[in-house]
Design a protein around this nucleic acid. Structure first.
Lengths: 248, 248
DNA sequence: CGCTTCATTGACCCAAATCAATCTACGTGG
DNA sequence: CCACGTAGATTGATTTGGGTCAATGAAGCG
C-alpha cells in the first residue's frame, strides 16, 4: 500500500503522457520540494490578478470559478491532486478567473523563470506540460457541451462519471468510495443549475440506484448504467496512453 | 488601405503578444507559404482522429463542435482569421471535438516537426503559441460561464460583443458592419439554445435598438448598452498589451 | 444551547423548449 | 422564364424543465 499515495502527484499526472527518465522525474520533484500548506477556501488566483507563479496541486481539491456581476457563480473547472492550476497563464496579462481551494491543500509554486530553466534542460517536460494543458482545455470544452446540451439529470451524471474516472486514475477511490468535497451548491455552480434542483436530481439518481451520495461520500453503484444515462464518452480524458513517448 | 487585410493573419494574431523581429515574422510567414483552399462545411478535424498537423486559419471562419449521441450539437468555439485551430493538439491521442469551416477558407498546415524546428530557432514564438492557446482556453471558459449562468438575451448579447471585439481587432469591421457567417441555428448551437428561441431573442435585441442583423450583416448600434446588458467584461480577451515583450 | 451551514421538501411560476405552420430567398432543371 | 425544392427565418400555441420562494431538518461547533 501507499506507493500510489506517496508518489508525487505531478509526476504521476505527467507520467500519463510521458514515460519519464530519472532526471525528468527528479526535475519535477524539485519543483515540489517545499510545498506550501493552504487552508480550504483560500484563493490561489484572483480574477484580474497579474499571474505570477505556476501552482501545482499536490494534495487537496481546488476549483476555478467566475462570479457574475448579477451575483451568480459558475465553476469552470475542478482541480484534483496532480493538476496544474492555470498552466502557463503567466503568459497572460491578467487572470480571467478565480481559483480557490475546496479543501486544505499542499501546493507547489514554481516561478516562470525556474520552469523555463527546467524545461530548457528537459524539453520533454515542456511537452508534457503542454499536453496537460490541452487535456484541461478538452475538459472545459466538454463541460460546455454538458451544460449547453444535456438535461439536469444526464448533466449531473456526466460530471460524476468524469470525477469518478479522474479520481480513480490518481488512486482516490481505494475502497469504491470517493470523498467529493463539494456542497450541492458547488455542484450546482459547476453544472449551471440551482442547489434546489441539484438536490432533486441527486435524489433521482439515488432512487434509480445509480449512485450513493451521503456526507460527501460518493459511490457509483452502477458505473456503466450511469455512463449510459450521461452519454459519457471518456475520449476527452485521454485515457489511452499515447504510444511513442517511451523513456529515452 | 489594405495593409491590415494583406498582412498575414497569424502574424497579426501573435503580434498581440509579441513584438516580432523580422526573423520571427519570416518564420511565421514561412508556415503559411502554401496554404490550402477549403470550401465551406469541410472538416479540418474530426472527433476521434489522431491529430496530425496544426492548422492556422488565414482567411475565413471555422467552428469547433461536439455532436451529442442524443442528436444535439454544441459549438465549443468560433475561429476567425489568424486563429490556430487545435493548438498543440498533436500531443493528444485523439481529437476530442470536430472543427469544420463555416466559409470557404485558406488554411496553413504545419507539421509538429516543422513547428518544433521553428520554435527551437525562435523560442519566443513557442511562448506566443502558448499565449494564444491560453487565450483560447479563456474564451472557452467564458462561454461556459455564459451558457451556464446568463439568460438567453444577455447570453446572446455577450457572444455578439465578443465576436464584435475579436472581429474589430483583425480588421473585419471596416464599415461598422460585420458579416457573421452563422445561421440562427448555428448561433443557437453555440449558445445552448434552440433556433426558435434564438430568433425571438434576436428580435428583442433588434427592437431594443441594440443591434441590426439582417442577411448575416451584423451592426452593434450601441455597443456600450449591449455590453451592459451582457455584463460583458473583455478581460478574458487579453486586449491589454502585455508589457515587457518588446522586440529584442 | 443557540448559530451557522447544508440538505431537503413543497407550492408556484416562468423562461425556454416543443410542435407546427408560414414565409422568404435562391437555386436549378425543364 | 417559371415551377419546384430546399434552407433558413419567423411566428403562434402549448408544454415543461428547472427556477424561485419559503419552510423545515439535521449536523457540527464555539
Amino acid at each position: 500500500m501507499g506507493s500510489l499515495v506517496r508518489e508525487n502527484a505531478v509526476v504521476r499526472k505527467l507520467s500519463r503522457y510521458l514515460d519519464m527518465t530519472d532526471g525528468e522525474r527528479a526535475a519535477v520533484e524539485s519543483w515540489c520540494q517545499t510545498p506550501s500548506k493552504y487552508r480550504a477556501r483560500q484563493f490561489l488566483v484572483k480574477e484580474g490578478d497579474r499571474p505570477d507563479n505556476v501552482r501545482m496541486l499536490l494534495t487537496g481539491w481546488a476549483c476555478g470559478f467566475v462570479d457574475t456581476k448579477g451575483g451568480k457563480r459558475q465553476i469552470v473547472g475542478l482541480l484534483l491532486p496532480g493538476d496544474i492550476c492555470d498552466g502557463h497563464a503567466s503568459l497572460l496579462r491578467r487572470a480571467d478567473h478565480n481559483v480557490a481551494l475546496l479543501t486544505d491543500a499542499s501546493v507547489a509554486s514554481v516561478s516562470p523563470q525556474r520552469l523555463a530553466r527546467t524545461t530548457a534542460d528537459h524539453p520533454r517536460l515542456a511537452q508534457a506540460l503542454w499536453w496537460s494543458s490541452q487535456l484541461d482545455e478538452g475538459i472545459t470544452r466538454h463541460w460546455l457541451v454538458n451544460v449547453g446540451r444535456r438535461d439536469a439529470v444526464s448533466r449531473t451524471a456526466h460530471l460524476l462519471c468524469e470525477l469518478w474516472v479522474r479520481a480513480q486514475m490518481i488512486g482516490l477511490i481505494p475502497a469504491g468510495q470517493l470523498i467529493v468535497p463539494l456542497t450541492q451548491q458547488d455542484l450546482a455552480d459547476a453544472l449551471g443549475m440551482t442547489s434546489v434542483h441539484m438536490n432533486r436530481v441527486i435524489r433521482v439518481l439515488r432512487e434509480a440506484k445509480l449512485i450513493t451520495f451521503c456526507n460527501r461520500e460518493l459511490t457509483l453503484t452502477n458505473f456503466d448504467a450511469l455512463a449510459r444515462r450521461a452519454e459519457f464518452d471518456p475520449t476527452y480524458l485521454q485515457l489511452e496512453r499515447r504510444p511513442g513517448v517511451a523513456r529515452t
